[in-house]
Each structure stands twice: as C-alpha cells, then as structure tokens.
Amino acid sequence: MLVMRHISKVFRTDLIETHALRDFSLEVAEGDFVAVTGPSGSGKTTFLNVAGLLEGFDTGSYSLDGVDTSGLSDDARSRLRNEKIGFIFQSFNLIPDLDIFDNVDVPLRYRRMKTAERRERITSALDLVGLASRAHHLPSQLSGGQQQRVAIARAIAGDPKFLLADEPTGNLDSLMARQVMDLLEQINEMGTTIVLVTHDPELARRAQRNVQIIDGQVSDYRPYESHVRPVREAAPQAAGATT
C-alpha cells in the first residue's frame, strides 16, 4: 500500500539546514493499522505530510497503492489525495460555516461525483459514525468527539484505501478518545489501511504495528513482515487505564 524508500526531506533557511527525514524507509501493507510514534521534533509531522502527499520530498521514492508519487503534478497529487487518502486531523479541521452534511461532502465534490451518489455516501458515512441525525448541525453545535467523528465520516466517505490520522484524539478527553479509536479499529476491520501518527504510547499500543521515528529515521525499520501479534486485543485495558 505504502512504500517509502530512502526518503530525505531537508528544510533550508538562510542560516540552517534541518534534515526532517533522512534515509527514511517504511512499508505499510494493505489492511494494516500502523501507529507511528516518536518524540517532538523527530519528524512525525514531516512523515505525515510526505505520506499524505501534502508536501514533496527531496530524494528517495514513495509509491502509494502502486502509484509512484515522485514527479506528479500538483493536480495529480490533489487527485491522488482525494481518491486514495482520507485525512483525520488533530484539530478536526471542519469548515465552521458548513453544516455536517456539507463538511462530509467537501472531498466528494472535488471528485466531481453525482449528487445522488454523494448523498448516499454522506448518509452512510454519517450513519457509520452515528451522527446521521445531526447532519444539518453546524460543527460548533457538536462536542469535540462528535466533531472528530464527523471528520472521520469526511475521511471515509470517499472510500479511500488509506486513512492517515494525525493525533486524532489529541484534543479529546479519554472517553471520546476511546470512541474515536474504536471507530478507527472498526474502519480498519472493514479493510481500510490506517496510519496513525501519535506521541501517545497508549494509543499506539492499540495498533497492529508500531513504528518509531527518531531523528528523521525509522528506528526499527525492517521490510514488511506479516503481523504475528494482534495488539488490538489488549486495547480495552489500555484505553480503560486512561479514563
């Protein structure tokens, strides 16, 4: 699903060069649920931006669902993001002036989908996150957890193969965080690959596989092997401990 090989990403100013990612390699298989952890400044966000095609990289190669992303035009990257990737952000990033229905509709409109199909997808995504009855509420009328569930509905409405979650529970209390994690696990079980970027080891433990980034490199990189340890079963206790 996601294959990054020897990626480097350098931020340059007049005075300094910051190597955000160096010789960064990672593979994520289809259906995987991977948690990416690491201390502040380790390169997690840069990885997230590169993996989500939100930023380019300097050297190396990155293929997403079999598509080599290097050399793609800006429009092609937008299309790939729209079709293959669902984003879940720490701050939800809902559009405050649009109601829930229209928020979930945003990526579908950019896919030039017909109205009837969009309506069906929005309704089923909102159903899945349990907010179909709030479709015409504004984000400000919902709790943080509900807003993040709307963001998840937006992310999955387009039926992406790959979900990229950036600290999805960072702004939530533990109960809401657990609901959001439950939802992510449910989505993963339905076949969607999930990469979860977090600094919270408790959350990371609920993923099938943990990857740690330190100083812009994967600290325990190895070419992909099938999981032998489904960590997910330990999740209820882990989540319970945080409440």
Binding site: D75, S78, R79, E83, F87, N93, P107, Y110
Partner: peptide, 16 residues
C-alpha cells in the same frame, strides 16, 4: 488559511 489547507488536503486542486 487553515480551511484552504484542509480543502487542498482532501483533494481540492489550486483551480478549485
């Protein structure tokens, strides 16, 4: 700005 970034992230092209 953030809303524009979000729209771009979820698939809006510059022309959109």
């Amino acid at each position: 700005t953030r809303q524009i970034g979000t729209r771009r992230a979820v698939g809006a092209r510059k022309a959109d």
